[in-house]
Structures are given as C-alpha cells and as structure tokens.
C-alpha cells in the first residue's frame, strides 16, 4: 500500500509520471515537467517518466522551436540527465505516430531516426512495473 499518513510526508517518495500530451501545443507535457521539477526540488525521487498516447512526441529530437521559445524536448533530456530519470516511450504508441528509434528504423526498413537516444522504447509493462514500484502515479 502507498504510504498515506501525514508523518510520511517529510520523507522521500517515489513517483512515476505518465505524459499523454504532445511536446508542443498541449498543456499536459509542460505541466508534467513543472511537477517533476517541483517534486525533485522537495527531495522526492522520480524513477521514470513514461510517455504514452501523444506523449511520445516529446521524444522527437527533430523538435525545432525558434530560439526564443522553450524547447520542452531539450528540457526533458536535461532533467533526465541531471536527476537520473528514465525516459520511456511506449513503443507501439510511438511507432503508430512515426516516432522511431535506430532499431525501429532498421527493423521496419525506414529512412531516418527521430527518437532521441536518451528516450528508450519500452512496452506498457514498463508503466505497470513502474506503478508497482512507485508510491504515486501522476498522469498528465
């Protein structure tokens, strides 16, 4: 059972974050990013950010906003590196939407790769095992 008493709150908790919104044009991913920053600042641990549905677009390394605009894709990479967070795409959701890793490119005879190497392609099982391990799942 997830701990739920007030006394626990001073301790570190484990979060898994699920992102279902795209890297641009959706509020969900920005909000998830702010939540992660705030949780880490409080000393909590985020072991995984799982990208499902349109969330897989966050992995697109060809994301290219103007220089005076926030680059959320890049922000996810930096956050993951700084805090040792696994960025995991649902592979089937990603393939359907044209987000492909080097391996997917080879396996499907495609021309190019757009999934940043810091994002791993995983199955939905990674979300489930992540939920089992975490104190809280927060979806966006």
């Amino acid at each position: 059972m997830a701990p739920n008493s007030g006394a626990f709150l001073s301790f570190m908790s484990q979060f898994i974050i699920q992102v279902n919104g795209s890297v641009y044009g959706s509020f969900a991913s920005v909000s998830a990013f702010h939540f992660c920053q705030a949780a880490l600042a409080q000393g909590h641990r985020i072991h995984k950010v799982f990208f499902y549905q349109d969330g897989v677009f966050n992995a697109n390394q060809l994301t290219c906003p103007a220089s005076d605009e926030p680059n959320l894709h890049q922000q996810w990479l930096t956050l993951a590196t700084d805090h040792n967070i696994a960025l995991v795409n649902c592979v089937s959701a990603a393939l359907r939407r044209g987000i492909v890793s080097a391996q997917d490119t080879t396996e499907n005879g495609l021309q190019s790769v757009n999934c940043a190497p810091q994002f791993t392609m995983g199955g939905l099982g990674e979300l489930i095992t992540g939920i089992e391990k975490a104190d809280r799942l927060i979806s966006f």
């Binding site: 499902y52 549905q53 939905l124 099982g125 489930i128 089992e132």
Partner: peptide, 19 residues
C-alpha cells in the same frame, strides 16, 4: 481519437502483469 484503443491495450496488459 485513439484514447479507448490505447486504454484497452493498457487494461489487457495490466491484467497480464497480474494486477
């Protein structure tokens, strides 16, 4: 949209992971 389809995938997979 694909919400139901992707929700169904998750429901079946969660069950096969013995949740």
């Amino acid at each position: 949209n694909a919400a139901s389809r992707e929700g169904l995938d998750l429901a079946l997979l969660s069950a096969s992971f013995e949740q």
